[in-house]
Every structure is written in C-alpha cells, then in structure tokens.
Write a protein that binds this DNA or RNA. Structure first.
Lengths: 325, 325
DNA sequence: ATGAAAGCGCTAACAA
DNA sequence: TTGTTAGCGCTTTCAT
C-alpha cells in the first residue's frame, strides 16, 4: 500500500503538501495540487485511517450499546441514530451486549481506548455509577433517564406515559387492568409499575400480581400471555403492553381463541411501530427514531465542543387512538 | 492519557517489556510483570487502539453493509454475524447504505483505508465488478450468490427455493398463483421470477403481470396487496411472499376484509421469522441467522489466513408447513 | 529475559 | 505557499 511519502516523492512535493491536498486545505498552488492528485490516482492511493485517527486523536466513530441488534425497539432507535450519523459522516460501531455487564464494560473500555469518540447507550444493566467515570473519555448519551448522574440523556417520562395509558383505559370504563413489561427490575419497569399502582389506587382497585406479566419482549411472548389470561378465573379487561410486537402477538393469539378485541380484552401497545398500524392497534408513540437522532446529535455536539455540560432532554409521547381499546 | 512510555518509566522497565506484559507474551519475569501491572493500575492506563491498529495493520473490525438497519431480514442476519463476532472478539461497523451506490462505495473505501479487516455484504446495488477490486484489501463476503465473481459468498438457491414453494402450492391444487417480491431488479428477484414463470409454464398457465407485486418489503406493504387483490376480477388463489412480515400484513388485512386464509387466499412466507410462528404461517426457512454466522466465519478464516481462496457456500432451506396453505 | 530503536502513516506546528 | 520535523502510541526485530 502506497503512503503519503511515496505520493510526495512522485508528485515532487513534501508530505505536508500532500496532506494539505488530501484534507482540502487552502494555500496549495494549483499545479502542485494537480501533481498530487495525479500521483494519487497513479498509485491508487488511499489514506490509512488508523494513522489519521492516531494522529488526530479522534475517530469519527460512535459506539452504540444495545442488548440486542435484532429487536424492533432497538432497530428503530438505531435507525434514528444511523440517519443522523450518515449526515455527519460518522460511523457506527454496534455492540451487542445481551445485557451482559462484562460486554457492557468492554464497550466503555473502547471509549477509553479511543476506538470511538462517544457512546450511545440504547439500554444497559450496569449502574450509572459504573458508567459515569467513562464520561471523562468522551460523551456518553443514554436513551433513558440517567437520573442524577452526569450522563447525558434523551428520555421520556415513563411514569407519566404509563399513567396516561391507565387514564385512557379507566376513562373508557376499565377497572380490571393488567400490564406486560420487559425486564422486571429495569428502572423503566419500576416506574411503570409505580404508575400502575398509583393509577389503581386512585380508583381504589387492588393490585394483582397475576395480572402483571414480565419478560414480554417479542411478538411470540404474547402467546403465553393470552394462554395465562384464558386460564384465569378473574381476568383483566385491559392490558397495557410496552411493546407493539407483544401486543400484536397477544391480539393474534386472542383472536385465534375467539377472544374479541377490544370487547373482551382491550390492548394498548407501545412504540407505534408499523405493526401497530397494520393491527390498527391503539398505542403510545414514544418517538424512538427521534430519540435516536437526538442522542446522536447530543453526542456530536459534545464531540465538536458545541456543548460541554451533560444535557438531559425529555421527549414527548403521543397516544394514538385506534381500534383496540 | 498515560502512554506506554510513562508506564515503562514508572515500572522501571522498557516500553517493550510493557508491551509484552500487555499482550501476554512469554519471557517476562514475574517481578517486572508485577511492576508493570501496578503502574498500569496506578495511572489508570489503557492502550490506544488506534496506535495498536496502525502498528499491527489490522483492526479486528468487520464492516457490515446493509441497506437498512431497521428491517427484520437484516436484523436477523446481523444477529447471526454479531453472535459469531462476539465470540471472536471482533467489532461490527454497521453501515447503512439505503442502496445508495455512493454509500456502498464508501464502505468499500473504508476497507481500503484499513478501517476494517473485512466486509460482509447483506445486500447491495453495486455490480460485482465494482466490488471485486476491493477484495485485494481484505475479504469480502456476500450474503447472496456472487455468481462467477471472485467474491466469497453464503447464499441459497433462490430459484430452487421458489420452485419448491410453487410446487407445494401446485400440489395442493393451486393454479392461479401470484407473488410478492422486494426490489424488482435484484438478482434474487430475477431468479425468483424465472422460477415462477418456469413453474407456471410447466402447468401451462399464463403469466399475469397484475399478480406480481414488487416493492413488498415491510409489514405495511401487505395492505396494498390485499386491496389490489380485492379489486381484481380474476384473483390468484395463492401468493408466494418473500417476507414473513409482508405475509403477516397480508393476512391481517385479508382477515379484516373477510377473506379466509387459506380458503380464499393461501399464503407462503419467507424467512421463518418469529412472526411466522405467531401467525401460524407456512413459510420457507432460509436460515438467516446461520447465513450471518457463516459469513462472519468465512471472513474470519480469510483474515486469519486459514483460507485464502474465495469460498462459495450454499445453504439449505426448509419449507415449514403451517396453516396458511 | 530485556532493551534500543526502527517502523506503522499521518497531522500540524513552525520555519522559511 | 511550501517544506522540515516532531509527534501520535504501539509493536516488533534485533542485539545482548
């Protein structure tokens, strides 16, 4: 592989002139520029990015920490990140962690090792205190509420959001309400559960453990929910489901079993994914794409020093009324 | 940020010894090793990966070229790639191209610029001849038939596969068969169309343009298909749909319109995604996960010189009989 | 077992 | 406008 030195030699100039040409700097005479360009073509030259990165101390790479690449929620989020990265000519290093703390640590380490200029956290299991020290090495933006930590974040108020879902159901006469969440112990789940309990308390309904479904992450998880529902003596008349995929699974299996939606069972989904539209599913749009692009922008602004302090940006959400309630 | 030199100084050894310790080389006395380790902890040192990459000439990064990050097909494929990469300690640079030739070219350029050690192509629009020259800079593995080019590939025989789908439908009495494909001009689509035409010719049925749907990529694309189907005077009794998502969209919209599946319309999907299971959809499993992991392994073997010649590996497929035919 | 030193290829400050 | 040169931080060969 030819290097800048050989180009310089052939073009009859110094390496700095070559560098200037490559980087489109001013103050290069037209004939030298041409000579360099010709040499570049002649030798089929390309810069060695590792050398560039080492020399500059930056990489134009953003790391994306997600538990799973193949999950509608993160796919949509990454799409938002990617669209913004594409415009700014940044590359994405997608790191699948499977919620493994060791894997998550490795991603943080890569920031320290200057492999990437910043990190966007889609979701994680590590505590904020374990992540915080790494902000020294570059911006870290979380796509969830980072609480009082010094980590930037784009998030929405899941308590509020869940409360609104509950309110909507209650206003339509439901009192027996259940929910489907993902990880039982995640911060978001905890908030949602609190919202759920508060909402029930407000209408003097007791909380029932058996109406709370956890580990509902994918479309197929909806099936088990329906079967459990069928086995119950007392059944919830409505379900707040924090994933359109799971909601779609529930609806499909429900219909197969002759359960009428929403008459027998009302369902509210989350995310407003395309599948929600197809199912005519009432859902809460939590702006995943926008969250992704906002996260990238935030990281970008920090890298380019447009900002220095951590930011916390709350996004809105929108209840989309369709036919499953 | 501390560097190897400072560590050496504090530990009272040379930089080479530090390097040996970091890289777990043999021939380092126990006390020096300990001294180095202590210095590393003391200064909170981490290697600068850009320097490592420059020095070594490799990066342990594989580029993944996909038109879209947020698409079930590529998500599943990337999951396969990722699972293998995780085991081998490789990082994934996911590059979304939107089938833009310029973006695709940039990914290839990054290989030349030594930003990545190899590339896995999920799908592309560039011609093989335009890609082939870049194999000089590192292994390129395509997740589709790369024809006679010198590019490695993992693929399945889409002609055969489509033929089998047709055969299955025909055996069950269908003669009026349509299909839903993605990009009209892709190599795969062309093969499938040929298979379709050959299958019809074999039963002396004419080919009808209006029964061939293109640009069917996402779940929501299924709706339009159903509406067009409804408007037809003569309708196909069966549809071969190269995406479970689209098939699910079709089924959902069909049921909503009182169309019975499979009595009025039989549907075969593709990919055997989780959604196919939920919909009890007859589908053809084309082993996307395995394709992804095989692609990574292939790239890996070339990088580590276990192989040098381009490989072409054909994967099997499996028709999964469920209830939509 | 250890160290000196020559790269790896580029950027950018400085001098001219 | 151009060139010289000192880094960037690490690996690895070659001596010892």
């Amino acid at each position: 592989m030819p290097n800048i030195k050989q180009i310089a030699k052939i073009a009859g100039v110094s390496v700095s002139t070559v560098s200037r040409v490559i980087n489109h700097h001013a103050y290069v005479s037209e004939d030298k520029r041409r000579a360099v360009m010709e040499a570049i073509v002649q030798l089929n030259y390309s810069r060695n990015l590792n050398a560039v990165h080492l020399s500059k101390g930056t990489t134009n790479i953003i790391g994306v920490m997600v538990p799973s690449i193949n999950h509608a929620y993160f796919s949509r989020l990454m799409e938002g990140i990617s669209s913004e990265a594409l415009m700014k000519d940044y590359q994405l290093m997608v790191c699948q962690t499977n919620y493994n703390p060791v894997s998550e640590g490795k991603v943080l380490d890569m920031l320290k090792m200057k492999q990437m200029d910043g990190i966007i956290i889609g979701s994680k299991t590590l505590a904020w205190e374990q992540i915080e020290p790494f902000t020294e090495y570059g911006p870290i933006v979380a796509c969830e509420d980072a609480g009082t930590s010094a980590i930037s974040s784009v998030y929405l108020d899941h308590y509020d959001c869940f409360r609104q879902g509950m309110r909507y159901l209650i206003e339509r006469g439901h009192r027996q309400i259940g929910f489907c969440l993902g990880r039982a112990d995640s911060a978001n789940s905890l908030k949602r559960r609190r919202a759920y309990e508060d909402a029930l308390a407000a209408i003097h309904e007791a909380v029932r453990e058996e109406w709370m479904f956890y580990q509902c992450l994918r479309i197929e998880d909806g099936l088990a929910v329906v079967h459990q529902w069928l086995r119950m003596r007392e059944r919830p008349t409505a379900l707040l489901v924090t994933s359109d995929q799971v909601a779609a699974g529930i609806i499909t299996e429900a219909r197969k079993n002759g359960i009428r939606i929403p008459e027998d069972l009302a369902v509210i989904g989350f995310d407003n994914q395309p599948i929600a539209q197809v199912f005519d599913l009432t859902t809460i749009d939590n702006q995943l794409f926008e969250m992704g692009s906002a996260a990238f922008q935030m990281a970008y602004d920090h890298i380019t020093k447009k900002r220095t302090k951590p930011e916390n940006r709350e996004l809105g959400y929108l209840l989309i009324e369709r036919s499953t309630v």
